[in-house]
Design a protein around this nucleic acid. Structure first.
Lengths: 107, 107
DNA sequence: TATATTTGCAACCATATAGTTGCATATTAA
DNA sequence: TTAATATGCAACTATATGGTTGCAAATATA
């Protein structure tokens, strides 16, 4: 099984999925699948697959209501990516300690 | 062609590539391919492919010296991931404005 | 010079991924 | 009740991905 961080990174590595996710975030409300797929050129089933990947990564939540399935964005898991990045931040942020001082602290 | 951000995200979405990259970062020095591959269970050619992906994403630089090819980590492109994340940060950081205020500003 | 080391290239394999279409089913509306 | 809508499931396709092995070429060492 893939790790959580791997699932999240793979989910956002696809440009179409990033678009879907972003659309859901700015919509700021749950949207049924057909409505989402109406905004994209690919088929509904293609969208459904992407939604599944996003759901597995925890980036969206899906709730069934009647015949519809409402998708809601949940950006919280992106915190994990942010945390992963944190270590490397020192390399582009001059205000942070650089690598050599990290290595010094480790020794 | 894939966008820069897509290349970077795909590069770090693979756990083996994250490991290779991290090893090069903490090594803080250029390492020849054979030396890198010695630290992993997969074949040298497998490593070479991963290095190519990392190089295409700009996350490592490779320099030939004699028969050896020295790989050096370059975390700078991760800044792009950081920038992409920035927009969603408000959802996990309470000190930032929330989505509704973003939407208000947009209106 | 002969040998060992480092590497690239090419072919190959299995599986994952991104997409499609067709059809059945459940729910809602006329 | 009949028709329209929203969805899932399954099969299929093409290409990408992560890995392997064998071999040739370039460079360094004995």
């Amino acid at each position: 099984m893939q790790s959580k961080i791997t699932k999240i990174l793979k989910a956002i590595a696809d440009p179409t999925r990033r678009e879907i996710f972003h659309a859901l975030v700015v919509a700021a409300t749950a949207m049924p699948i057909t409505q989402i797929s109406g905004q994209f050129a690919i088929s509904r089933q293609g969208i459904t697959k992407h939604l599944k990947t996003l759901e597995d990564a925890g980036l969206i939540q899906i709730q069934t209501k009647g015949r519809e399935r409402f998708c809601l964005a949940d950006p919280l898991p992106l915190q994990e990516v942010n945390h992963w990045l944190k270590f490397y931040e020192r390399f582009w942020d001059d205000t942070l300690q650089n690598l050599s001082s990290y290595l010094d602290n480790k020794a």
